[in-house]
Amino acid sequence: MADTPSRGAVEEMISFYSRFDPATYLSDLETACRRQDGRSNKQLRPLKLLQGVLQKSTAGSSLAKIGDTKVLAGVSLQVGQPGEDSPEKGEIGVEVNLLPLCHPKFSSIQAQQEESKALENFVQSVLLRCNVVRREDLCIVEGRHVWKLNVDLQCLSHDGSLADACVLSALLALADVTLPVTIVDTDEKVVVLHDRPPRRLEMARFPIPLTIGFHADMLLGDLSLAEEERIPTRLRIAVDCETGQLCTLQKLGGVSMASEHLDSAVALCGARQKQFLLERDLRQDKS
């Protein structure tokens, strides 16, 4: 086996080739049915989820890893006033940080803002529109005081499917949140009772996201960064982990897709759902 090149060397060669001649790289992808990192078309990268990684400084935290994409999430609690049109509902805010730490392309503030703002909006709409938590649970006194959850997402390493990692880590951080018991004193101020056991925030729904590429009638599950740069047709789908209902489907540019391809793309999300449930069971066994 002396003359077979090492796996690292092969990957490097392919990565050079894909940059040098992207058109041939894509057409080879069609014929070989093998991807740069050796996965088959529908194979996803390993998923690793950790909860409670920042217990001192946050109310809930998590770290989500999809292959080499890593996102750290922390939730901080704040007491605020509810909005006028929803006096009994708490609020959830999302902030995404993309620093040069995770990828050199985020070296300018402009480049950071462009991607982080769009991601922020996406994660926030998933959390709010899909009723991930019942916002009534965040009420302290109707019309006066509610909990405001600030979800901060820090991307540590960007290797594609960043939105998936952001949604997953935000969800796990929310699932990790404990709300302290409070009373309202005579001055209408909220006082936290530290001696009572805090209550865990209940999750109503868990939308499991997956980024899918579409190229030459082929679906590629869980794109890496190199693939994201070369495949213009990308789908971002999230399905509920229990019922399999569709939570969001985002397809932005690229070629047009017929319904049957969209159908099989939605079906592909089942693989990530299984991965997630397995990971969750493993964690529960440990604790």
């Binding site: 709409s125 998933v126 529109r129 899909c130 009723n131 729904r205 509920d240 399999g244 209902q245 569709l246 939570c247 969001t248 489907l249 985002q250 397809k251 932005l252 540019g253 047009s256 897709m257 017929a258 319904s259 969209l262 159908d263 939605v266």
Partner: peptide, 12 residues
């Protein structure tokens, strides 16, 4: 379908 943005719970 060229672009699709759906947000919210529905059946496929």
């Amino acid at each position: 379908v060229l672009s699709c943005q759906s947000m919210g719970i529905m059946m496929p």
